[in-house]
Amino acid sequence: MPKDQPSEEPTKHQPVDRSRYEASILRLDGIFRQMSDTVNEVSKWRCPYKNVESRCTANFGCQNQDRSVPEGELFICKSDDNLDYRSAWVVSNDQQTNLD
């Protein structure tokens, strides 16, 4: 529970309960393992770089990027999620030049 203490005094932290910490890590590991399974499933139909607002978070070129956005905004992803998005990813400098 929180303790009242003047903010100017150095905070003395309660030591960590090791067994409770280990249980926490196990729980977090379980959450992340389920997330990893979801990644494997969702990545079959949706590009993992496409965010919930259908914007592209990739740091590389992709033919599905609609670049007609204000400067500073993420590109719009044009993928309809039905095609293999990987074929649209730019993997060479020549392809990148064609996008720019």
Binding site: M1, P2, D4, T11, H13, Q14, V16, D17, Y21, S24
Partner: peptide
């Protein structure tokens, strides 16, 4: 942490 919550509680 400054308010005295434990690291376990925050996690």
């Amino acid at each position: 942490l400054a308010d005295g919550f434990s690291a376990n509680d925050i996690m």
